[in-house]
Nucleic acid binder design. Structure first.
Lengths: 111, 111
DNA sequence: TCTCTATATAACTACATAGAAATATGAAAT
DNA sequence: ATTTCATATTTCTATGTAGTTATATAGAGA
């Protein structure tokens, strides 16, 4: 009756990737990069995050392979590595809407 | 040049949903429920989680609308509410594989 | 070389949460 | 009513990490 157990290691690495997307700041960074590459200074302006904090988030996104980077003189330019991340976000939004709708219906039944 | 800013509230709730999926234990619970509904006792056995801990994870999954529950006598039966969560996981796995492959290629270039 | 600018890292604090143990709730059965 | 079983909740501890400040690195130019 039980389902084939996924390797604990698999569960860990997948969960870890979800964790990277579980910060509003990082989602905003990805969203800002949706239209195209930006350097760190532009991202500071676009997101309002302070330099050190943004840099940390960028390292995390980069380590997870969500963004690529290249140096251009003094600047470092970041860009989305895998646009399927936006598919993920859209799916998540869809679930969110369905869940919210279900909750509203539930409330209506109570009244 | 900057992208349309998403409402901070939107970013927060989407990030919060990703956070729910960012725990190996919760992913395992969902995976165990993939084939069909199970009660808590069966889930304890299937996952190896202790009762209190599993119960907490189930509350979190339920609050997020990932699972539904119903009582059956002494038992409480949980079931996946929205199977699109598995689409999310599959997408994440795909990204993971591409990222891993890219890293291997990168290593080859260094040698 | 020294200096300036852009970005990264270290060190720290504050807060969130996973896990475990103890206790509470709730439904059935005697 | 009380006992028993299944599940939920509370309380506590330990760990992880976001944000901030201060400092380090790296490249460009004088």
């Amino acid at each position: 009756m039980s389902h084939k157990p996924l390797a604990p290691e698999t569960l860990r690495v997948v969960a870890q990737r979800f964790k990277i997307l579980s910060e509003p700041a990082r989602l905003e960074v990805l969203n800002m990069l949706r239209k195209g590459p930006l350097n760190v200074s532009e991202l500071i302006e676009a997101t309002g995050l302070n330099q050190a904090n943004l840099s940390k988030h960028l390292q995390i996104l980069h380590a997870g392979g969500f963004v690529m980077r290249r140096r251009d003189g003094l600047f470092v330019i970041y860009e989305v590595a895998d646009h399927s991340v936006f598919t993920l976000c859209d799916l998540m939004c869809g679930q969110l809407k369905r869940h919210a709708t279900a909750q509203v219906k539930q409330l209506r039944m109570v009244r």
